[in-house]
Structures are given as structure tokens and as C-alpha cells.
Amino acid sequence: MPNKQETTIDKTNASSNPFKNSRVSILNKIMPILLFLCAIVSVFTTIGIVITLLSETVNFFREIPIFDFLFGTKWSALIEPKQFGILPLLAGTLMITSIAIIVALPIGLASAIYLSEYAPDKVRRIVKPILEVLAGVPTIVYGYFAISIITPIIQFIFPSAGVYNALSAGIAVGIMIIPMICSLSEDAMSAVPRSLRDGAYALGATRFEVALKIVVPAAFSGIVSSAVLAFSRALGETMIVSLAAGSTPTLTFNPLDSIQTMTAYIVQVSLGDIAHGSIEYGSIFAVGMTLFVFTFLLNILAQYISRRFREEY
């Protein structure tokens, strides 16, 4: 018997090799390649987008000096005399985003703390899915909501406010990103081990003190990520601002004025009959590039912050 076994192993023929299996070897060869191809799709798409943006942007800057673009305070792309100073659009975008964050961050964080630290299991099980549904509401609906409900309330309080104003759109964008901040922060807080909470409770900490001094610091990197993701989302939000914030690129810091954001400008130009290759056409790529650079820097900042303040547990 021992002799026979030896001879089977010695055989070099694959079909009779007891440690060879066609299913296993094919899967091991094919799957990594297949999965790699899928992964590379998004990488190539990103590269493609950046190249398109860059080439059109470069064309645009051949005609408009980059200095005028970055520091000009007047934007009138569609009306003569044409001027391409990005500052009004930038100010509009930042105003909407700031209002949104001012609305969403406290409410989102407070509800996350409630859900993770106070709410009984039953409440959490009902509220969380509802929040996630809220995150799936199409943004055009929020736009209608801004015009038909928020704007009249604002006009009631501040009669000087226009039909289109930054405040209304900003609040709607804020409401839109609340679920995102709440849901992601709640995930981060729930992931903080119970033993840490127990340690603090055992020292005589109240629920609120545990939430604020133990859970929030331990979940800080997750909370920052959620806030930055929401910030980027607000920065890129298009539909609500196109509907409710107007289309007047003015450099103003009054939230009751009508403004225009970078995204809303791109929509406005894309929908019009602008000739391919014209200066207006190039301008939407330059504006898009600016937006891209902003979100990119923001993400880097977020990574830095969340790494810098991470509390490992």
C-alpha cells in the first residue's frame, strides 16, 4: 500500500494530481482580474473627467487671464460686456453652503446624539430608516419645498426678501443634508464600545456628559467625515439652488438677496443654446474645475483633521 501512494503523488500528470482542482484554479486566476477591471473603471472615469475639465479650462484661460478669473468681482457671461470674475459665484456658493451647515450641523449632531445615547431601541429602529428615506428624497422636491414654504415664511419675517433668495435655498440644502450628518455620525457614535461608556458612567457621569466627553471625542473622526461629506454635498448641490436661489451672480453677503452658485451657473449655461467652443462654453469648465478643486481640498482637509484628532479605541 505505501508504495502505491508514493507513485500517485510522484506522477506529474495534472489530472491525477490529488491537490489540483480545476474549479479552484480557474477561480483563483479569473476572479482577481475581473475584480481589478471593475475597480479600474472608476479610476479611469475620474482620470477622464479631470482631463476633460483640464483641457477645456486651459482653452478658457487662453482667452481670459487667470488673474481676472480668480479675483474679478463681476460675473456676466451671457450679457455684454462679458466679464468672468468667479468671486460672485464663489460667494454665492459659500453662502449657500455656510447657511446649510449652520442649519444642519447642530440639528444633525443633536439628533445623532439623541439616537445613539438616549433613544430606546424601539425608537431608533423606527427613526433611522425614516431618516435614510429622507436622504433619498429627490432634490427637486426640496427645491419646490424651498419656494413654496420656506420662502413665504422668510418673506413674512423679512418683507425685504426677494422671491429668490440665498437664505431659503440654504435652509433647504441644510434640511437635505441633515439625514446624512445624523446617520453617519450616529453610526460612528454607536461604534464606540460600550465599555468606554460604562467606565464614564461608573465615575458618576450623566448621560449628556458621557455623550459629549466620551462618545463624541471617540467618534470624532467619523463625525468630521460626515460633516465634510455633507459639506461637499452642499457645495455641489444644484437643483435646489437653481430653483430657489435665483440666477443673479452678485457679490453680496446679504442672504436675503438673489444670488447664483457655481453649479446653478453651469446648469443655466448648459440649458441655453451656447455654441460649442465658445467662451461661455469654456467658462462652465473653468467653473467646474474650481468646484472640483474646492471639494478636493476639502476632502484632504477632512482626512487631515480626522487623522489628527483620532482617538483610537
Binding site: S195, L196, G199, P217, E311
Partner: peptide, 8 residues
């Protein structure tokens, strides 16, 4: 507690 649970 049973498991050491220092705060981070």
C-alpha cells in the same frame, strides 16, 4: 470592570 477600559 472585567476588561480594562481606559478612555482613548
Amino acid at each position: 470592570f472585567q476588561q480594562p477600559n481606559p478612555f482613548p
